[in-house]
Computed example of a mutant assay.
Amino acid sequence: MMARDRILKEIQTLDPQKDHERIVFLSTCYDFSFDTTRALELALFRTFCVPSISRLLDRTGEFRQRTQKRYDDTDILISELLEWGYSSERGLRAIQRINKLHGRFSINNEDFLYVLSTFLFEPIRWNSRFGWRIMCEQERLGLFYFWQAVGQRMHIQEIPEDYQTFERFNVEYERHHFQYAPSNYRTGMATVNMFSGWFPNVLAPSVQSAIYSLLEPPLLKAFGFPQPSPFMRWAVPSLLKLRASALRWLPPRRYPRLRTEISHPSHPHGYVIEKLGPPEETKGK
Rank of each mutant, 00 (worst) to 15 (best):
Pro237Gln: 02
Asp72Phe: 05
Ile156Met: 14
Ser213Pro: 02
Ala190Gly: 08
Gln68Pro: 05
Arg186His: 15
Tyr114Thr: 08
Ser88Asp: 09
Phe105Cys: 12
Leu44Gln: 11
Gln96Glu: 13
Glu139Asn: 06
Arg129Phe: 03
Asp31Arg: 00
Ile156His: 12
Gln138Thr: 09
Phe121Met: 14
Asp73Thr: 08
Pro228Cys: 12
Ala43Thr: 00
Leu247Ser: 08
Phe25Gly: 04
Val192Gln: 15
Leu44Ser: 07
Gly85Asp: 04
Met189Phe: 15
Ser87Val: 03
Ser79Gly: 03
Gln65Ala: 10
Gly224Asn: 06
Thr28His: 15
Glu139Leu: 01
Asn193Lys: 14
Gln157Ala: 07
Asp35Trp: 03
Arg254Glu: 15
Pro51Ser: 07
Cys49Trp: 13
Pro256His: 06
Glu216Asp: 04
Lys283Pro: 00
Ser27His: 08
Ser88Trp: 13
Phe195Ser: 07
Ala204Cys: 00
Phe32Gln: 15
Leu57Glu: 05
His176Trp: 10
Asn108Ile: 06
Phe178Asn: 03
Arg66Asp: 15
Leu258Ser: 01
Met154Cys: 07
Gln96Thr: 09
Arg233Glu: 07
Gln12Tyr: 05
Leu239Glu: 02
Pro182Leu: 13
Ile273Gln: 05
Asp111Tyr: 04
Ser87Gly: 04
Asn108His: 13
Glu80Ser: 00
Gly103Phe: 11
Phe231Ser: 01
Arg46Gln: 03
Ser238Asn: 13
Arg70Asn: 09
Tyr185Glu: 05
Cys29Leu: 14
Pro251Asn: 06
Glu80Cys: 02
Arg248Asp: 12
Phe121Val: 15
Val171Met: 06
Val272Gly: 03
Gly188Thr: 06
Leu56Lys: 05
Glu110Met: 11
Pro160Phe: 05
Phe121Ser: 14
Leu116Cys: 12
Cys49Phe: 14
Arg70His: 07
Leu81Pro: 00
Glu281Asp: 14
Ala235Gln: 01
Trp147Asp: 04
Ile76Gly: 03
Pro123His: 02
Pro228Glu: 02
Ile273Thr: 09
Gly151Asp: 12
